[in-house]
């Protein structure tokens, strides 16, 4: 059974200019221990999807889905209290700017201690104290921080970007969640730090048997350990499937463009030559195209694209496009 099973999730909100569909029938399946990358530019609704999963959306928005299942249990049918229990126990989230999410007024040790579940430490008062301390040290080791004594005593502002992100990961994994949602954890980082964090996330997924849902805006920053990729554009799912297949033989024009536009692909080109890019800009919420929302920017679009394409499958990938690329020769 899938750990997380989302079918046709739709989120609608009432904006100042009428009703807007910010997520349009998005499906996503996540297996236990799987690393899944969700790629989308800004405005694609990728963060909304994560928020819908942990249940922190604005209550005024309409959330409908054929299925929003966690371990076979319907999340939408639950009371807020039941849902919070599941979210608090099994899910964790880290963000782009760790310093904004760490409490500036308490030390790293205090914040990690707070995140350790109370049931984990037992015994007398002194026992618990020592036990907690060793656990904090363990957690810091697990996220690759070796000089735990110094880090434990420091306040968030004293940490560098990378270490702060590692600390926030340590806090996230303190209660051994089944799913870690990482919302653009490396976007603003410099390359070496970025690499460290990415490797760490991949390693943790394996060692903790934890699923990771990585949200990123660039195919270049998906984790090396990613098994499956999904691409979102303007609230619509474009393509999802096995990483290898998608990166090597993208079916959707958007995937193709995203791969060609990634920073890595630039290195192949001559210096100062034109970079490949999609024309135009991401449409605003008020001017969403009908049908396939990529339509106006898609180089392969035809008349048919004003009708939203249904899902199609090809080996290890599923895509939503009338005119797929890289069709196998029959």
């Amino acid at each position: 059974m899938d750990l997380l099973d989302i079918r046709n999730l739709t989120i609608e909100m009432d904006g100042p200019h009428g009703r807007v569909r910010v997520l349009d029938k998005v499906s996503l399946q996540l297996k236990e221990g799987e690393v899944h990358s969700l790629v989308g530019e800004s405005g694609s609704g990728k963060s909304l999807l994560a928020k819908a999963v942990i249940g922190v959306l604005n209550p005024l928005w309409d959330v409908t889905a054929d299925r929003l299942w966690w371990n076979g249990k319907d999340l939408l049918a639950m009371t807020p209290k039941q849902r919070r229990a599941i979210t608090g126990r099994d899910m964790a989230m880290i963000f782009q700017d760790p310093l904004a999410y760490l409490d500036p007024n308490s030390t790293v040790a205090e914040q990690i201690t707070e995140a350790i579940p109370a049931g984990d430490v037992t015994g007398t008062f002194m026992h618990r104290r020592i036990d907690r301390k060793t656990r904090v040290a363990q957690l810091l080791h697990r996220v690759g921080i070796r000089d735990h004594d110094a880090i434990m005593q420091s306040y968030p502002y004293e940490l560098s970007e990378g270490v702060a992100q590692k600390v926030s990961i340590a806090i996230a994994i303190a209660h051994r969640p089944k799913l870690l949602i990482a919302d653009e954890p490396t976007t603003a980082m410099e390359p070496s730090t970025k690499d460290q964090i990415q490797r760490l996330l991949g390693k943790l997924a394996v060692s903790q048997n934890m699923s990771v849902l990585l949200i990123t805006q660039d195919v270049a920053s998906i984790l090396p350990a990613t098994q499956r990729v999904s691409l979102l554009y303007c609230g619509q799912m474009m393509e999802h499937g096995d990483t290898e297949t998608i990166l090597n033989r993208p079916a959707h024009p958007y995937t193709d463009a995203m791969i060609k536009m990634s920073l890595q692909a630039h290195a192949e080109l001559d210096p100062k030559s034109k970079l490949p890019s999609l024309p135009g800009a991401v449409p605003t919420l008020r001017h969403m195209p009908i049908g396939c929302r990529l339509g106006p920017r898609c180089p392969y679009a035809q008349k048919q694209c004003v009708k939203a394409p249904l899902v199609r499958h090809r080996e290890e990938q599923s895509y939503y496009c009338h005119f797929p690329l890289n069709e196998p020769e029959s």
Partner: peptide, 21 residues
């Protein structure tokens, strides 16, 4: 070296395979 050549490993994984395919 670290500043200039970071990600090259990652990079070959993505585009290197694709050219092979």
């Amino acid at each position: 070296e670290a500043l200039l050549h970071e990600h090259l490993t990652n990079h070959s994984q993505i585009t290197g395979n694709s050219s092979a395919k």
